[in-house]
């Protein structure tokens, strides 16, 4: 009797495979409330007017010169830091994986990359202010490396003969970045600070690909007559390219969504999309909440594109690496 009951129950179980999903429902409910609803709110908000009717009018927000400026600025910062951080990070990652860096250096850099890639935020901004801000420690040091032209008569004469007004230059500090228009509180400063978490992220994402470069590929190409330069052109770079592009996209997205560092560093003086959205949350600077949603939607769209492209490239990279 009990045997029959057991088999009957098992049959029922198999009849409804969806039953298996029941255990995931608490998680899904949580996600629906705190991730899906908020996203939907932004999405529907972006395509409805204040009366609730469907419309594309909100996309006009992108004609607003301030918004456009913010988007251009954000894209610029993201692209520059992705490039600078990516390039620098790649060279460092190459040095520690293929370049035969000493073991201690390898360990310190890879450990610290894990830390620094998640650094970001307010403390990072404070660190850069304390280090290379107007009164920062490094700035002070660089400012000290000055010389007085009066003590270098020959140079002064030379400059004077070139038409330079020597009397204006009593104190020259060639290392002080602020004499060259650098400011931590401007785009250049933002790039410098973002690079702090960008290049470690590059190291983290590109290291597996670099480690996947087989020594035998180099030897096989050499054996077939290739020079190291040809090996890089024909094998190493093409093999690495999906990973490099993918990692750069990741860096791009990482910078594009960043808020806290920029906020703490520049106090909102640089118009980034994320800063602009912050202002919109606080006080509806656009005067139309639905346009605010459209603004946010644009940001999500760019991020989604970035991540989708990243994962496609990643798939290609791993497929190659398998063989």
């Amino acid at each position: 009797m009990s045997q029959m009951f057991a088999t009957r129950q098992r049959k029922l179980w198999r009849e409804y495979p969806l039953w298996n999903w029941v255990g995931l429902f608490p998680f899904f409910i949580f996600i629906v409330f705190f991730l899906v609803f908020p996203s939907l709110r932004l999405f529907t908000g972006a395509f409805t007017n204040q009366e609730g009717g469907l419309t594309l009018d909100n996309l006009k927000v992108f004609e607003n010169p301030n918004v456009l400026k913010a988007y251009i600025m954000s894209l610029q910062v993201s692209a520059i830091t992705a490039f600078v951080g990516g390039f620098f990070g790649f060279l460092v990652a190459y040095s520690i994986t293929q370049g035969g860096a000493p073991r201690w250096m390898r360990n310190v850099i890879s450990t610290f990359s894990g830390l620094a890639a998640n650094f970001g935020g307010v403390p990072l901004a404070f660190s850069f202010i304390a280090t290379i801000g107007q009164t920062g420690i490094i700035t002070a040091m660089l400012k000290k490396a000055c010389f007085n032209l009066e003590n270098y008569g020959a140079l002064a004469q030379f400059l004077a003969s070139g038409g330079v007004n020597v009397s204006d230059i009593t104190n020259v500090c060639p290392l002080n970045p602020y004499t060259y228009g650098f400011s931590l509180y401007s785009l250049s400063g933002l790039v410098l600070a973002y690079t702090y978490f960008q290049f470690p992220l590059m190291i983290l994402t590109i290291t597996p690909a670099l480690e996947g470069l087989k020594k035998e590929w180099y030897e096989a190409s050499t054996n077939l007559g290739a020079t190291p330069a040809k090996y890089w052109r024909d094998v190493a770079l093409p093999v690495l390219m999906p990973s490099i592009l993918g990692a750069s996209l990741l860096l791009f997205g990482n910078a594009f969504g960043a808020y806290a560092t920029a906020r703490a560093l520049t106090g909102g003086s640089i118009p980034l999309v994320s800063i602009y959205i912050g202002q919109q949350i606080r006080g509806d600077v656009l005067g139309n909440p639905n346009e605010g949603y459209a603004l946010a939607f644009g940001m999500v769209a760019i991020m989604t594109l970035t991540i989708v492209a990243y994962s496609l490239l990643q798939r290609r990279a791993t497929r190659w690496m398998k063989s």
Partner: peptide, 18 residues
């Protein structure tokens, strides 16, 4: 992985408005 795709500021925006 979505929280990586949706920037924090956007998520907060949505949460607050919802």
């Amino acid at each position: 992985i979505l929280p990586f795709v949706i920037p924090g500021i956007i998520l907060v925006f949505g949460l607050i408005r919802t």
